[in-house]
Every structure is written in C-alpha cells, then in structure tokens.
C-alpha cells in the first residue's frame, strides 16, 4: 500500500515548539476573541488543516486507533488508498477543545479535506458507501 499515514504528533504536545506562523495572517474569517490569550494550539491546528489536503483528527494513531469510530474512519481512508495526515487528539485535552472550537463539531474523529470539515465517522461512512468520499478525495 503506497499511502503512508503521516502522523503529526507535534501538535499540542509541546506548545512552545509549535512553529510560529511565519508572519502569515490566519485564514480569512478566522474568528478570534479580542484580548484572548494567544493560542498556539489553535494556530497549529488551523495551519495543519490548511496545509494538508486530507487530515484526520482522531483518537490514537492510524496504526493504533484508540476508538472504534476513529478506527473505522482510518480503515475507509486506507481502503480508498488515500494519503492522509493524522493527528492524535488524546495527548492533550486542549487539542480537542480547540479543534471543536474551530470546527463547531463536538465529536472525534473529524475529517477535513481541502480545509473543509467533511464530517465524523457517520458522514464519512455514508460518503464511503455512496462513492462520494472517493470523489471528494480525488
């Protein structure tokens, strides 16, 4: 199988080591609470979502999923031979908090394609079965 999952363990594990976003402004429409503390985790998440065409936020890793919904979502992506980046949200609870704040989506996993939330396991399953997922991943 040529699709090698691409783990991103650095997000959130060491807030200080998250690379600064080289002076680039956030995406248009990104909301930020005025006066709120700067938020390296949220910035790193936004960057990762923009940078990777297909990125899955999950519990555990593609090799060792820690939740059945995450495992199923990984299996569907792998069945389509789709390369994807993956982020384990478990190491730091703030990752999940910030991710849900960005995506307005309460559950894990969350699949993003082209910077857009595609959905969680249920939607990915429906789209996999209908062939829409393969289309979206092209």
């Amino acid at each position: 199988m040529s699709s090698q999952p691409h783990p991103l363990p650095m997000i959130g594990s060491e807030p200080d080591s998250v690379p600064a976003s080289g002076g680039e402004p956030g995406p248009a429409g990104e909301t930020r609470t005025a006066g709120a503390d700067s938020n390296p985790i949220r910035e790193a998440l936004s960057e990762a979502i923009e940078k990777h065409k297909v990125i899955l936020f999950m519990k555990g890793t593609p090799e060792a999923p820690a939740c059945g919904f995450s495992a199923r979502t990984v299996a569907m992506l792998q069945a389509l031979d789709a390369p994807f980046a993956a982020v384990d949200i478990l190491p730091d609870p703030r990752i999940r908090q910030e991710l849900s704040a960005i995506s307005d989506w309460p559950t894990i996993p969350q699949l993003f394609v082209g910077g857009e939330l595609i959905g969680g396991c249920d939607i990915v399953t429906e789209m996999y079965e209908s062939g829409e997922l393969a289309q979206a991943l092209l």
Binding site: W105, T107, G120, D122, I123, E126
Partner: peptide, 27 residues
Amino acid sequence: GRVAQHRLVYEILGAEIGGAIHALSLT
C-alpha cells in the same frame, strides 16, 4: 449539507455530547 444537518442535532444536546453521551452515531 450533512455537516450542517448533524450540527443541528448536536446543538440540541450541547455539552452532553462527549460528556454524558459518549457516542452518538447519527444519520
């Protein structure tokens, strides 16, 4: 879209999703 449909349902249950409701498989 599906994401917006699911959000409508999630909003009803609010913070219980991921709290008291560990998993809600939704169609």
